[in-house]
Write a protein that binds this DNA or RNA. Sequence first.
DNA 1: ACCATAATCTTACCATTGTCAAGTTCTGAG
DNA 2: CTCAGAACTTGACAATGGTAAGATTATGGT
Lengths: 206, 206
Amino acid sequence: MTQSNKNSTYHHGNLRTALLNAARELAAENTIDSITLREVARRAGVSHAAPYHHFADKRSLLRALAIDAFTELGKQIKEQWQTDPEQNLKAIGMVYVQFALSHPTEFRFMFRKTLCEPIGTPDELTEIANGIFEMLISTIQTMQETGLATTGNPQELALIVWSTIHGLSNLLIDAPIAPQPIPDGFLEYQIGLVQKMLLHGLFVRA
Amino acid sequence: MTQSNKNSTYHHGNLRTALLNAARELAAENTIDSITLREVARRAGVSHAAPYHHFADKRSLLRALAIDAFTELGKQIKEQWQTDPEQNLKAIGMVYVQFALSHPTEFRFMFRKTLCEPIGTPDELTEIANGIFEMLISTIQTMQETGLATTGNPQELALIVWSTIHGLSNLLIDAPIAPQPIPDGFLEYQIGLVQKMLLHGLFVRA
DNA sequence: ACCATAATCTTACCATTGTCAAGTTCTGAG
DNA sequence: CTCAGAACTTGACAATGGTAAGATTATGGT
């Protein structure tokens, strides 16, 4: 009764993505814990119950953010993909850490296990993450086939590789140490160290 | 009026630690996000406003948990400390990852930057974390002095070392992959890989 | 021993949040 | 055209973090 909008904006048209964007915005301004369904709705210019027609609950909204982030990361890695496996290994590292640094809030979402589906459910999040992980594994396998790396379980080797770049990303973002802001060239240098370490320490040529 | 306890339990006596324990319990049962000040108070058998006499707010309570966890980790590392720097490097890695695996919720607290003091404030959390980090740095320095490692900025090297074990810990706990539960001997093997990688890849002897 | 003062805890209250149920408005397929 | 259902709104509920004011107990200085 109060409102008599002539223009029919009763249906938002693209609310789902508007909500996701609002949530990202909110997270960037503050913390990922400061995301509030009601504030998200408010920013999308919609009532506080509207989101429930696009997401089952708050967790689902957050999970969608995590899925989006993983998808984007995968996309960025694929864009850098070439034929040389050694090159690809480096690309994965650089893209990964840079993604974490330039989208810290999104990066944090990706590893909040709370957001995953209950155990046993086939999880979209898990699938996408596994997709990226398998790019790493196959890179290592290629390196092994071409004699660039030692034999060994590629899965276990890949876990170590992922650990190094994931750990670096995490520490740079969230460790209660870290020299902020990060100096110029620091990233390249550190990634270089990691690269060297992997090639000479893990993938020892026979 | 309702209660007329003869025994004077009006003062809890040790509420602060009781609250912390209740919080840890709650986190372990569910998620660290499921911690509720009111439920914590309930479990400690105390009114919902009582915690505010021991912690400024919820964040302070959680921060105390993080500080406790860092302290405990530091203690465990020191217990394994010996003279051989190579041995110490291994000890740090093992203790670190094992701590993460056996106290996953506490481990997660340690790296929720939200819990740190506002930027600029001298932060107890940062201090303790730096203390552990410096044990790593000094280990590397010792290795350099005794010719076990190449020259290079010990701080930067330490960051890489920390990254590897931190990343491994994180992935094992929170990555949406990870073969759960972790097979027997898996940990030792992976840490072995890391160790090998560091010694042959990062700390190349001249 | 005594009492003021501070520490500890309680009750009452507020705004905000996540979620649900029931109603309202729009849209598109038949 | 119409009407089933999708997209939204309003209103309510219990629970939460936080504050304020009062009750209770401990403590130290005299």
